[in-house]
Design a protein around this nucleic acid. Structure first.
Lengths: 190, 190
DNA sequence: TGTACATCAGTGAACGCGCGTTCACTGATGTAC
DNA sequence: TGTACATCAGTGAACGCGCGTTCACTGATGTAC
């Protein structure tokens, strides 16, 4: 009775959700298959195996997210503070509406073998470092070590989301604004 | 010829080192045993199994670290800024001289099942939130959401160490000072 | 419109191996007399 | 000082099962004539 539904997307969404919740290692093929309503073999039509699947999904989601933030950070027509604020709002919105995808890229990165992580091309931290470096060059913010301050900003901005994911922090409607203000002060502006 | 050496400590140090490097799931009993120079069975004299061992070591190390920071944060004779600065210096020193232990508690926490993490009693984030809440109460720092700002501070302070561990950021002798200054500004003092 | 064949998403049962765990044992150290 | 026994850290080989992976298959959909 009309089952032209491609299961691939269901499998992938399910996998991301479970990976994001239980972690890579504790998630079994059986988990994914049964939750997705397919048999375990179905998975191997699309991927060579569990590890490869996780890695491909991870990179896909990471790139999707990174591209989104990139567009905001390097929108040349806005001033530094606006861009940073908008980027943080974008991140918080992304987390709000794509909690599983976000938690997946945020929490499972340490679950991959180190060699794989070397081959990652896109990386948010590098992007933010470039962003800050440019701002320093233009005199928009006081001089600072761009790499170090990129990590401070990223750490500060993401930590509330990590804690929220674990049910340890409440997020309010204006949390992203408070975070932005804090980050601007951290950079010694405003 | 004189092997009164208790292997337990060797096993534990080795386990922590490998856990911190490869992650909980990718570390096998065989890894630990062979690196520690014992057979796999030896491990079961001291622990009921791999999972229990990892969890006990994790809590032990977390408590050791938390207690250290606690003493600094709640040393009543110093002002807020000094205590925060000293705490951050203490963290950075701890990381420097106990890299494996630190990375173990920092990076493997997401590898445990969620139920276990619920039972954790000591937690650095709660501690920092209390610390900030007290400072607000005393008027040492401007009013703010203690929980949120605790997570901002923790995120900012720890992120450089995470990145350093992955070889993505250099740490200089004065990095902890820069981090401290940034955190003080973030809290809107100095 | 119907027949023959190709393609392909998904099945379901079996496989096999890596891994954590078990257990009877050995040999060294301690204790009693 | 020597003998007998208990204790206990660590051995090494075997076990078994959970898990990822394989593969011959089915049944639905598409294509050619």
């Amino acid at each position: 009775m009309s089952r032209p539904v491609i299961k691939r997307e269901i499998i992938e969404e399910t996998a991301i959700k479970i990976f994001a919740t239980k972690g890579l290692a504790r998630t079994t093929i059986k988990d994914i298959a049964s939750q997705a309503g397919v048999t375990e073999g179905a998975l191997y039509r699309y991927y060579d195996g569990k590890e490869e699947m996780a890695w491909k999904l991870f990179n896909r989601e990471l790139e999707k997210f990174t591209r989104l933030i990139f567009q905001v950070l390097f929108e040349e027509r806005m001033c530094f503070a606006l861009r940073l604020g908008l980027a943080i709002k974008t991140i918080y919105d992304y987390y709000r509406y794509n909690g599983d995808q976000f938690a997946f890229i945020l929490l499972t990165q340490h679950g991959f073998p180190e060699e794989k992580l070397q081959t990652k091309t896109t990386d948010p931290v590098d992007m933010v470092a470039t962003f800050i470096g440019q701002a320093v060059g233009r005199g928009e913010i006081p001089p600072c070590d761009a790499d170090l301050f990129a990590s401070l900003i990223m750490g500060a901005a993401l930590q509330p989301l990590v804690l929220h994911r674990y049910g340890r922090l409440k997020l309010e409607a204006d949390t992203h604004n408070q975070v932005t203000q804090a980050c601007l002060r951290l950079l010694d502006i405003a």
